[in-house]
Simulated assay, not measured.
Amino acid sequence: MAIYALSDLHLSFGTDKPMDIFGDIWKNHAQRIRENWIQVVGEDDVVLIPGDISWAISLDEAVPDFRFIESLPGTKIISKGNHDYWWSTKRKFQAYLETHGFKTIRMLHNNAFRIGDFAVCGTRGWNDPGDPDFTEEDRKIFRRELDRLRLSLEEGRRLGGEIIAMLHYPPFDAEHRMNDFGALMKEYGVGICIYGHIHGRGDAVWKNELADGIRFSLVSADFLSFTPIRIV
């Protein structure tokens, strides 16, 4: 069993949201995801998908997108992104999965999963307080997301194993220094952190790196040529 990651799928089978308006790199991106995924992921593997999964605004509208995900090999652990407007409670989502016969998808939300020798934890994250447009409302969300990450990390600690954290927003400030999310992960001894949200940035800043004992990986789909990357 291997653990892979790929974020920002931005699927829109149930709504009209073509991604190629953001550049030619997004042309036929869903088909490319399918082809590449099948090439590298096996049925016994796990794929972490940290946010921006579907452009749907409701669970009903998201059915074709989750049917697409369900059809791909492996177990998928999903967490929330800033564009996942369909997001719901765990109980409602579990009922949704059962109703539609989706058996390979799991929701990460204030919880954690033990996968082999690893505990998978995480939350959405939020914009850094150093951003020029950061508001008091942003501060409330930022603190709430920190609380959710701590809940998840506590559960991961109880489950045991090396902790993998999956966030949607990068846990860095504008100078690419770890922010409060990074400090919290360091407190809990996180070994690996994956994140998405960043697009079209293949420069020296947004790269795989080791900082304060944590191995960070940017896993946005376009950054990875729409191919799941093996984490462990």
Rank of each mutant, 00 (worst) to 15 (best):
R144Y: 09
G160F: 07
Y96V: 14
R201L: 10
L167T: 13
F93L: 13
G189W: 13
I25W: 04
R158S: 07
D173V: 14
R106Y: 15
S79M: 08
R143H: 03
T75S: 11
D52C: 07
K140G: 05
L184G: 05
N82T: 09
G196V: 05
L224H: 09
E98W: 15
T123C: 11
T75N: 12
M107E: 10
V40H: 08
Y195F: 15
C121E: 09
V219A: 00
F68G: 02
P170M: 09
V41D: 00
P170F: 04
G161I: 11
M19E: 10
I3C: 11
D147W: 03
R32A: 03
A221K: 09
H109I: 09
S152T: 11
G196E: 12
I25M: 13
V41L: 00
F113L: 09
G130D: 10
R124W: 00
I25A: 14
K186T: 05
M178W: 04
Y96L: 11
I115F: 10
H199Q: 08
L151E: 11
D128I: 05
L184V: 13
A56G: 03
D20C: 12
G160C: 05
I115H: 13
M19T: 08
E209M: 10
M166E: 01
D45Y: 14
G189F: 12
L146M: 02
A62I: 12
I77G: 00
D212C: 07
F142S: 03
